[in-house]
Write a protein that binds this DNA or RNA. Sequence first.
DNA 1: GTCTATAGGAGGATAGAC
DNA 2: GTCTATCCTCCTATAGAC
Lengths: 199, 199
Amino acid sequence: MSDQATHDRGATAQRILVDAAALFRRLGYERTTTREISEALGIRKASLYHHVSSKEDLLYEICLAALRDVEVGAQEAVAAAGDDPQDRLRAMVHGHTLAMLANVNFSHTMLTDMRSLSGERLQQVVALRDRYETWAEGLIAAGQKAGVVKSKHSAKQLTLGLFNMLNWTMFWYRADGDLTPDEVAELLGGIYFDGVFTG
Amino acid sequence: MSDQATHDRGATAQRILVDAAALFRRLGYERTTTREISEALGIRKASLYHHVSSKEDLLYEICLAALRDVEVGAQEAVAAAGDDPQDRLRAMVHGHTLAMLANVNFSHTMLTDMRSLSGERLQQVVALRDRYETWAEGLIAAGQKAGVVKSKHSAKQLTLGLFNMLNWTMFWYRADGDLTPDEVAELLGGIYFDGVFTG
DNA sequence: GTCTATAGGAGGATAGAC
DNA sequence: GTCTATCCTCCTATAGAC
């Protein structure tokens, strides 16, 4: 998790977020109890509330941190990639994947348990996600305009396909698995950009 | 839902599954209460238990039905496709996508809330899913052997990419949206097989 | 096959001492 | 900043009448 993510939080509050995200990924937000979170931290359940105002607050902070980290990771990679539309798209996939997998517990929680947020907070998280996806759609549209991305489908539809390819990864990625984050990015980008068929 | 899915269930029990799956997709399994399910059916909460032995039973039946429908849909499509490895892979994507979207509430619940099953039932559902994914991996491996699928990555890794591309669809697909199931299959297959870059 | 009533437990959150 | 004790609500599931 970036320092930026937590620059205004105490060290304990930050540990709570990290431990909670690990539990949320494993058990799901609704199934995880505040008692389990406190036990992971070695304190009593009531002590949590000195640092956090509610369980839903934890979810909210995790969603914001996850979205911000991926957005920053992808956009910095693209900014460093120069002007070539294909290079920019490859950089987006690489930056997105590395940021997502560096904090896979956060990304997983955000994508699958976002629905447990209530009212305004849900709308805010959805709006942030939509803003990011619209930015990605712009990269694809630029590629189409330059003639390097196929135009059989709209940029909107190709963006749906892009996030299909990227998002599901958190369900099977393991830090101790066969593939490094770089290799995952290379695999997914290779398929998305060039396909699996020869010729 | 296929008749096969439910040939040994009463009509009411089947309605309960359908209504429960719709609620589970919208709210999540853990958040959905038996009261909400019973209200969707127009009966009292206690009356549910005449048809179903527990809330978890509902989830279990939904997972089994979802897996079986997709597996049957994909395998029948492949059987009808003949011997060409590329045709067989295209048929798999088409059959899988149509079956998944025909019962998107079931597929969504299976893929996201499977983790709420306990013990033996979870293992059983995971084993069925793994069996299906291994079958799909075999189609890809056959394509590699025939030289029509790239061999830069292993069949296992290309299969991870395939289900990335397919599974996330249920998070955004809407029956009243822009795309028909056929168009979704064409979009996702087009990207997976041939990529989005020109040339 | 559906109902009313209730058991029995767990969950999130708070009060107030230390 | 952490603790013990407790409140209050809501949940799944069952009992037993109709």
